[in-house]
Design a protein around this nucleic acid. Structure first.
Lengths: 187, 187
DNA sequence: TTGCTAAGTGGCGGGGTCCTCCGTATCGTA
DNA sequence: TACGATACGGAGGACCCCGCCACTTAGCAA
C-alpha cells in the first residue's frame, strides 16, 4: 500500500509552499490563497487540500525558520553567560518576528478555535527557549514567574505593534530592550 | 449657508455609529461594514460616506473611551504617588485594550498609509499619558529613554497578543506586570 | 506492456465582502 | 410652494473563500 502520497501530490505541495512563501513575504498573513493557487498553476481546491486552513499554510511557511530558531536556542543552552545567551536568543527571535511579514500574525492568530491548545508556531519556540530561560532563572538572571511562553508571546506582540513602523526590526529591538530592563528601574 | 450637515445625515451618522459599536464589540475590528449597513437600515454607500475608511469608523467607535482614558490620565496627573499613578493608568489602559474587541487593532493598524503620521487612537492616549510619565521620570520612578508612545504601543501589543487567551484581561495584566518590572531583576 | 483503481486534480457555482457610480428622494430655504 | 443642493441606496464589478463533483493520472498488477 502506498502510505506516502503520490509523486505529483508531493510536487504540487512543494510548488504551493514555495509560492506561498513569496506571497506571504510580500503581502503578509492575509495573502490571497486564490492568488497563490494561480501563481503556482494549480486550482484553488488543491491548495485547500494540502493546507486545510490558512493557519496550516502559515505554519508550513514558517516551519523551517522556527526550527532554525529552536536550534539556535539549543546551541545557546550551553553558553557560558546564561544571561547573555537568553538575551541573544530573544533578540534573534525579535528580529525575525519583526522583519518577516506574517510571522507575528501566524504566532498569535490561533487558527483553530481551541483556546490555548498547542499553537504550532508558539509552542516549539517556547519549548526550545524553556531550558535557556530555566538556566537563567536558576542563575538569578531572570525574575521568577516568567515563562517561556510569556517571552514568546510578548515578542510576538511587540512585533505586531511595530509592524507599521518605518524600521520595524529596530523599533522592536528597542522595545524589547525596555521590556527586558523593565519600565521602572531597580529601586 | 448650511455649514452643518443635513438633519437626516446626522441621524444616519448616529445610527450607524451605534450599530457599529455593537458589531465591533461582537466581531472585532474586522466586523462587516455591509452587515453594519444592513442592521442600521441604510445602504452600504451611506456607511462609506460617513466613514470613508474602516480606520475612521473604528476611531469614531472608540473615541469616547479614548477620551475617558485621557481624562483619567489628567486626573491622575495630580496624584501624590507618581509611580502608583502611572501604574494605575497603565493598568486601566491595559484592561480596556485587552477586554474590548477591536480596540488594540484600532490602535495598531494604521489605516492610512502614512508611516507614522498621527494615529488618531494612539496619539491622544500618548499625549495624555505624557505628563504622567514625565513626572514619574523626574521622580526617578521610570527608566530614561521611555516615551509615552512606547508605553501605549507596548500595551496595545500585549492586548493583541492575549486576544485569544481564555481570560485576556487577566493575562494582559500579568504581562504588563512583567514589562513594568522587567524580565531581568535589578542586579 | 497494458489495464485498472483510487488518489489527486481543477473548474464551477454559491455566498460573502468591499467599493464605485449614478439616478433619485429628501431636506432646508427662498 | 418650488427649487437646488445634499444625501441616499441599489446595482454592478472585482475579489475572495468554500464545497462539490466529474475527470485525469500515477502507480500497481497481471
Amino acid at each position: 500500500m502506498p502510505a506516502a502520497q503520490r509523486a505529483d501530490a508531493r510536487r504540487n505541495y512543494a510548488r504551493i509552499l514555495a509560492v506561498a512563501e513569496e506571497e506571504v513575504a510580500a503581502h503578509g498573513a492575509d495573502a490571497s490563497l486564490e492568488q497563490i493557487a494561480r501563481t503556482a498553476g494549480v486550482g484553488s481546491a488543491t491548495v485547500r487540500r494540502h493546507f486545510p486552513t490558512r493557519a496550516a499554510l502559515l505554519e508550513a511557511v514558517f516551519r523551517e525558520r522556527i526550527e532554525a530558531l529552536a536550534a539556535r536556542a539549543r546551541e545557546l543552552a550551553g553558553a557560558e553567560d546564561v544571561r547573555a545567551a537568553l538575551l541573544e536568543w530573544l533578540g534573534a527571535l525579535t528580529d525575525y518576528s519583526a522583519s518577516v511579514q506574517g510571522m507575528a500574525t501566524a504566532m498569535l492568530r490561533n487558527g483553530d478555535l481551541a483556546p490555548e491548545h498547542a499553537n504550532p508556531c508558539v509552542d516549539p519556540l517556547a519549548e526550545a527557549g524553556d531550558p535557556l530561560l530555566r538556566r537563567a532563572m536558576r542563575a538569578g538572571a531572570v525574575r521568577p514567574g516568567v515563562t517561556a511562553t510569556d517571552l514568546v508571546t510578548l515578542i510576538a506582540g511587540i512585533a505586531l505593534a511595530t509592524e507599521h513602523h518605518p524600521d520595524p526590526a529596530a523599533e522592536a529591538d528597542r522595545l524589547l530592550g525596555l521590556v527586558v530592563a523593565g519600565i521602572c528601574p531597580p529601586g
